[in-house]
Each structure stands twice: as structure tokens, then as C-alpha cells.
């Protein structure tokens, strides 16, 4: 697995030290700084816009600091803005997303862990094929399953409900989490499980006492990845829920696409920030693991 990013391993430092003179460094820092500004600009715009009163938005520049700072837009986005005909703000949808994301993350990570354990330490004939089947699921364009899933959720009585969404996210999340754990466990020596077997431990005991305690990093990676994916999901939310059961992304899109009256851009931005804050927080707190999740399937290790 590529945790290379987290290790500060110098590669071409000696070259750069020799060949690069000070002016050369300018060509390195210059573009990097410009890019950094460009990357930060949308976040900056979202924050300052969300803090401005509406008049200032229509009067002043969208990029400048607010002259009067107000949290009205945030208040409105959180508890007053209209989503469809209900003017409840994002709060109930935020709660929906939490009710969806927590069980889905826990279940998919747990199932992925035990699948990865089996596919590496208890290989059976056809284990590789099973892994291949799961792996393709990571790359499934979900449009190809929307109609059958909608019908099936209806048959199961889960249509339009949060448990239904949890089921969908777990079903497709297993593919990713299994990949994470499998790739991690492949690098644990098989002798570890063999030693535990000689010590008398069985299938579950080895998993629980020997394998899981060594897997904290990959558990974090899996949880963060799943949390980000599920929190940010829109397609399943908009396809399988309606009205008050929608997750926050769907509600945000509804707020933003309201076409009646004077457009409240500050509320839009505050709402976007509210929807973004949980994943941004996770990213800030555990960015290292986030990167590992991103690159997990992509770079072999």
C-alpha cells in the first residue's frame, strides 16, 4: 500500500541541491504558490460569502472580506431554509446523513475486515476469483444498478428509507473495504496466523486477538474512506429517498436550486459549508489516512 506520502523520504534532494541555484527555486515555489491560491479560492469564497448579508453580496465583490460579518445565513441554512415545501433548514437532513453514515461505515468496515482476513489468511480454491468479483464492484457505474435496486428496495419495504440507504451503501462499500483490508493483510506474514494456530487459536480468535489489533491504521483508512464516500453521496440519495428522508447532499442541492425570489447566495454557501464540514474535519484531522485510502487501490505496495 502506498503510504509513501506519509514518509518524508528524500528522493532527488541531492540533485536539486547541486543543480539548482536560488533563482531555480523560484520556478518551483512560484507555480506551487499560485496553485495553492487557486485551490484555496473556492473555499475562501464560500466562507466569506456565507458571512455576508445579502445586500453586500449584490452590491460588492464576491471575493472580498465582508464589511459586516453576520451569521444569519448560517442560521437560516441550518434551521430555516426551505427544501421543497418544508422550511426546516438542513438540520433534519444533517441528522439523516448521520443516521445513514454511522451504521453504514461500521458495517461495511467490519465486513470488509473479515473478508480481507479470509481472502488472505484462509485462502480457499477460488479465493482469487471471489476477490476479482468484489474488485469489479469498486468500478461499477451505479447507473447500471439503479433501476433494479429501486425495485428491490421497494420489495424489501425499504424504499425511501434510511435503512434502505444503509443497505445500499454497505452492499457497494464492501467492495472497497475488502480491497483495503485484503491489501493490508497480504503484507502481514502468514507465519503469524500459523503461530496462533499452533498456540491453539481458531478462526475467530486469531482474527480478534492477533489480526485486528495490528490493523488499526487500515481500520482508520477504511472508516475515513467510507465516511467520505457515503456522506458525499448524491446519486443513491436522490434516487432512493424522497422528502424528509433525504441525506444532506440532496437537501443542499434542493436549497441551491430554489428558483423563486431573490437568490440567497449567502445561504447557499452556508449550506454548502455545513454539508462540507464533517468531511473537511475528517480530512484535517486524519488527512494522512485519507490519502492512503485514495491511493490504496491505485499504487501497488
Amino acid at each position: 500500500m502506498a503510504n509513501a506520502l506519509s514518509q518524508q523520504k528524500p528522493t532527488v534532494e541531492s540533485i536539486s541541491r547541486q543543480n539548482r541555484i536560488r533563482i531555480g527555486r523560484l520556478f518551483i515555489y512560484g507555480p506551487l504558490a499560485v496553485m495553492a491560491v487557486l485551490y484555496l479560492m473556492p473555499l475562501w469564497v464560500m466562507v466569506v460569502t456565507s458571512l455576508k448579508p445579502l445586500d453586500e453580496i449584490y452590491g460588492g465583490s464576491f471575493i472580498g472580506l465582508p464589511q459586516t460579518v453576520t451569521l444569519d445565513a448560517w442560521r437560516s441554512a441550518w434551521s430555516q431554509a426551505c427544501i421543497g415545501t418544508e422550511c426546516t433548514g438542513l438540520r433534519p437532513y444533517f441528522v439523516n446523513s448521520l443516521l445513514m453514515v454511522i451504521p453504514a461505515v461500521v458495517l461495511s468496515t467490519g465486513i470488509g475486515a473479515i473478508n480481507g482476513y479470509i481472502l488472505t489468511k484462509w485462502r480457499f480454491p477460488g479465493a482469487n476469483f471471489v476477490f476479482g468479483l468484489l474488485l469489479f464492484g469498486c468500478f461499477l457505474p451505479y447507473q447500471a444498478i439503479l433501476i433494479p435496486m429501486a425495485r428491490t428496495l421497494g420489495l424489501l419495504g425499504l424504499a425511501g428509507s434510511i435503512p434502505g440507504l444503509v443497505f445500499v451503501h454497505v452492499a457497494y462499500g464492501i467492495c472497497f473495504t475488502t480491497l483495503f483490508f485484503r491489501n493490508y493483510f497480504v503484507s502481514l506474514p502468514d507465519e503469524l496466523t500459523k503461530a496462533a494456530m499452533v498456540d491453539g487459536a481458531g478462526f475467530f480468535r486469531i482474527f480478534w486477538s492477533v489480526i485486528l489489533p495490528t490493523s488499526i491504521p487500515i481500520i482508520v483508512v477504511s472508516c475515513i474512506w467510507q465516511f467520505t464516500q457515503i456522506w458525499n453521496d448524491f446519486l443513491f440519495g436522490v434516487s432512493f429517498t424522497s422528502g424528509g428522508n433525504s441525506p444532506i447532499t440532496v437537501a443542499l442541492n434542493n436549497i441551491v436550486n430554489v428558483t423563486t425570489g431573490r437568490k440567497q447566495y449567502n445561504v447557499d454557501m452556508a449550506a454548502a459549508m455545513i454539508a462540507a464540514i464533517p468531511t473537511l474535519l475528517v480530512y484535517i484531522v486524519a488527512g494522512r489516512y485519507f490519502v492512503r485510502g485514495l491511493t490504496a487501490g491505485a499504487v501497488k505496495g
Partner: peptide
């Protein structure tokens, strides 16, 4: 890398 942590809905809105 932080944009990767955002929902496409948030990105689109911004």
C-alpha cells in the same frame, strides 16, 4: 488535496 474530501454537490455549488 482537500477538494477530494468535498462532495461534488458542494464543489458544484461553490
Amino acid at each position: 488535496l482537500y477538494p477530494m474530501a468535498l462532495s461534488f454537490i458542494v464543489t458544484g455549488t461553490a
